[in-house]
Design a protein around this nucleic acid. Structure first.
Lengths: 320, 320
DNA sequence: CTGTTAGCGCGTTCAA
DNA sequence: TTGAACGCGCTAACAG
């Protein structure tokens, strides 16, 4: 293992000078700095994270806490995770995964939280450490989120532009901000453009959507497009349409939300709004790291910071 | 922050004694040990991972490398992950997630590897660090795996015992050990018990299964049960049966494999072979930790160790 | 069985 | 601008 000392000897300086090249490069004469950097790459030197953690009173560990049953979890989190992990790795930080039942063990420098419900906020409050949410919140914590409004607005526009003349938004029956934003995206587009439209709210299960579409089939003329708030709903809609003898995408269009796994089950590959999950993960990690470094210097809460990331429509076979 | 010293002072012993209570409890007089343990809980003492890492020449980080595209990944990994993370947390280890593109950054004490293909073994070889696989391998590395043979054997038995008289195994068309074991489980059961049966191998997509069952419908008499090697295939089979007017589970039975998410899409909740993913994750972590501690003392490779975990049939609505 | 000493690799503080 | 000394929290090795 190469240490600071090894580099120092080879470069004929004290180890402090080498340390400064890493932490306060501006305090070292440029030529000397260059030389030392050279030696460092030559020796393939990597600072020892444990030693830095020890002296810096940092753990160099970030915890990701997922407040949701893993059982029913979508692949969603896996991609988010990848983004977070990648970003943290680059900064010599390790990620620790904490689930509902194990979230007290070990120390860390900060938390990334997701899937939170109202009841969990008390716990968050007591953490007293830097925190970043994935998904919006109204209690003033920093967060990263997708632009739900924009996503559905664009899905709707796409459907309209493809010539579907009746638009149906199938939402999730839950009064959370993310859902309200999605509905708003739909409503604003169809209102502005005077398009025949309706909004339906269902429990987020495919068979519920299937049953609904089946029993209201006469209300969906040809040339209807369904903009769905989740892929589960989209799959359910597709099943119903096919069972009723409707043709996708010629007579009916379907747009899902965040299609990852479920596409492998749909008869036609779903046109779907893709959330940039990897990017969201990276953003959350970066935001948290910034908070950690900031908190070090100045105590006290800063203003809520929000990072909103746009989604992209991935066009496939369920729309024309 | 509570340190060893704080505990030592309060307990009127040297900090070495406290340290021993943690690392070599057998070297401390039982009553003294008890007393110190008390003080430790009283003070809510937690050893500082960084300091231990520093002196122990360990990073206290384990890397999980998933050699597979996250895009198409099943929720599978998420649960595995939870198991690994929980176990590592208990041992003051942090988990780092490495994906295909980021697997060189940072140091660690060992690797948990999964989703590996033939081409990746060269990379594994060069690691030169303790390694544990999730999923079997023939190159002599330790691994944790489900008992694929047992799982399908029991599914098959269950179907037979429920009175389905014709059994069909829908396998995945791929010559990997896991698939061969599953087929073997099916074959041995039906052969031993002289049951009318057939084996079919398909690409692992639900629509492929749907198409196959549809076009061979006349070959599947009433009272047939389909034992499927994946839930995707099971869902596809179910769709076909329903489209053909067959009734589940009265006339036809379906058993899936490892139903996590997909159940939310099936018309009838699938009867499915549940892999104990959390347990597998924990087992993998424990095995790796053992290897890490072992390698510390004695250099050189030991015999391949295998941990095979049985699955459990979760009976739901797609069988009687 | 228990305590003392020394040092892991690094960064802060102070002195040069 | 650079260096020397000290200590972060912990444990291995030795001494008692």
């Amino acid at each position: 293992m190469i240490t600071l000392n090894d580099v120092a000897k080879k470069a004929n300086v004290s180890k402090m000078t080498v340390s400064r090249v890493i932490n306060h490069p501006e305090q070292v004469r440029p030529e000397l700095r260059e030389m030392i950097l050279n030696v460092m790459t030559q020796l393939d030197y990597h600072p020892n994270a444990a030693a830095r953690a020890l002296v810096g009173r940092r753990t160099r560990v970030v915890k990701l806490t997922i407040f949701e049953d893993m059982d029913t979890t979508e692949p969603y989190y896996m991609m988010l995770l990848a983004g977070i992990a990648n970003e943290l790795n680059q900064h010599q930080y390790a990620l620790q995964i904490a689930t509902r039942n194990s979230y007290e063990v070990g120390e860390c420098d900060g938390y990334i939280l997701t899937g939170i419900r109202q009841a969990d906020y008390a716990w968050v409050e007591r953490l007293n450490q830097p925190v970043v949410f994935v998904g919006s919140n109204r209690q003033g914590y920093d967060y990263v989120d997708t632009n739900n409004y924009q996503a559905v607005w664009e899905s709707t526009r796409y459907a309209a532009e493809q010539g579907y003349t009746h638009l149906v938004f199938i939402g999730i029956a839950i009064a959370e901000p993310f859902e309200l934003d999605r509905e708003r995206g739909f409503r604003e587009y169809v209102t502005t453009h005077h398009i025949s439209a309706q909004i339906i709210r269902l429990a987020n299960h495919s068979h519920v959507a299937t049953a609904y579409v089946k029993s209201h089939w006469s209300g969906f003329p040809r040339n209807t497009a369904f903009i769905c708030a989740s892929d589960r709903l989209a799959i359910g809609v597709e099943t119903a349409i096919i069972n009723q003898g409707g043709r996708v995408p010629i007579e009916y269009g379907i747009i899902g939300f965040d299609g990852v796994l479920l596409n492998q089950i749909a008869a036609k590959r779903l046109t779907t709004m893709k959330q940039p999950l990897e990017a969201m993960g990276r953003a959350a990690a970066r935001l948290l790291l910034a908070n950690i470094n900031h908190t070090d210097r100045s105590r006290g809460r800063h203003d809520q910071e929000k990072i909103i990331i746009n989604s992209r429509l991935s066009v496939a076979e369920s729309t024309r």
